[in-house]
């Protein structure tokens, strides 16, 4: 033991660099690859945030406007989209409204925690929305809370398939990131030949059966070609004010 101490003392810089390397490896794994919280994390989160939930004001969700996002206002649009995409109306989902009780400062506020969890039927990868549109998706879930990764996050793990409605044409792309300077969502993998106009509406298309279709993401604000010159990169302006979120609704259930 004494020899180890002497060796560490003699090689302080090497030990420091080794520890730093291990920590960076661990950090990288946690940020990009971690799929669920550890049991102790879930327990502590539930206990601490349950206490915090008591003193955090609850916001009255405008239920009707959130429901309208999917039903009344969008019905006509969705019907035409279904016809165009030749999709059947066999999706069923319900909404779980929740207040935000914490924002994660370590991730520059790109993660929020809500006061609903597994007990209320919330699960990983479910989408979070407001009446303005798509907000993010559930990353971790505990008994009474859920952590939502916002669209503004930088880790490129938020891959949701979307449709771009340009005139009578529909094109497909994937949300792959966020440009914080211009405050816009980035959609890539859009065919280079596609004729997309600025102002075209972008909605989720439900491909892959993971998410419901027809959720508003935003409108195209600018279009550019990627570095290879094969695909287009779209910048999407969202109506959601990510800095002032007070509540969200979680979409439970997808295609039957």
């Amino acid at each position: 033991m004494r020899k180890v101490k002497i060796w560490i003392h003699k090689n302080q810089i090497a030990v420091f660099l080794l520890v730093l390397f291990i920590f960076l490896f661990y950090l990288s794994f946690t940020v990009y690859k971690k799929e669920s919280l550890w049991p102790i994390e879930r327990f502590c989160k539930d206990v601490v945030l349950s206490i915090q939930n008591i003193v955090t004001p609850k916001y009255q969700v405008n239920y009707q406007s959130v429901i309208d996002t999917f039903t009344k206002d969008k019905e006509e649009e969705l019907q035409s989209l279904r016809k165009l995409l030749d999709l059947t109306n066999n999706s069923s989902f319900s909404l779980e409204h929740a207040s935000i009780i914490n924002r994660n400062a370590s991730y520059y506020f790109d993660e929020i925690t809500i006061n609903k969890g597994k007990e209320q039927g919330i699960d990983v990868d479910m989408l979070a929305i407001t009446e303005e549109g798509l907000v993010g998706k559930v990353k971790y879930v505990t008994k009474n809370t859920a952590v939502i990764k916002l669209l503004t996050a930088q880790d490129n793990s938020f891959k949701v398939s979307v449709s771009i409605m340009s005139g009578n044409n529909i094109y497909h792309g994937i949300i792959t990131g966020y440009n914080e300077k211009e405050e816009c969502i980035l959609v890539t993998s859009v065919r280079g030949q596609s004729e997309i106009e600025v102002g075209s509406q972008v909605i989720t298309n439900g491909l892959g059966n993971l998410y419901p279709k027809g959720i508003e993401v935003g409108k195209v604000s600018s279009i550019e070609m990627d570095s290879v010159g094969v695909n287009k990169i779209l910048k999407i302006e969202s109506k959601v004010d990510f800095k002032n979120l007070k509540y969200v609704s979680i979409i439970k259930g997808v295609k039957e």
Binding site: F23, Y26, L27, T30, V31, K34, L37, W38, I40, E41, C44, K45, V47, V48, L49, N102, N104, A105, S106, Y107, E111, Y140, V147
Partner: peptide
């Protein structure tokens, strides 16, 4: 450690 367990979702982040 408690701070990380409750808030950051990255165990040992604040500790380090």
């Amino acid at each position: 450690l408690f701070y990380d367990l409750a808030y950051t979702n990255i165990l040992l982040w604040s500790t380090v």
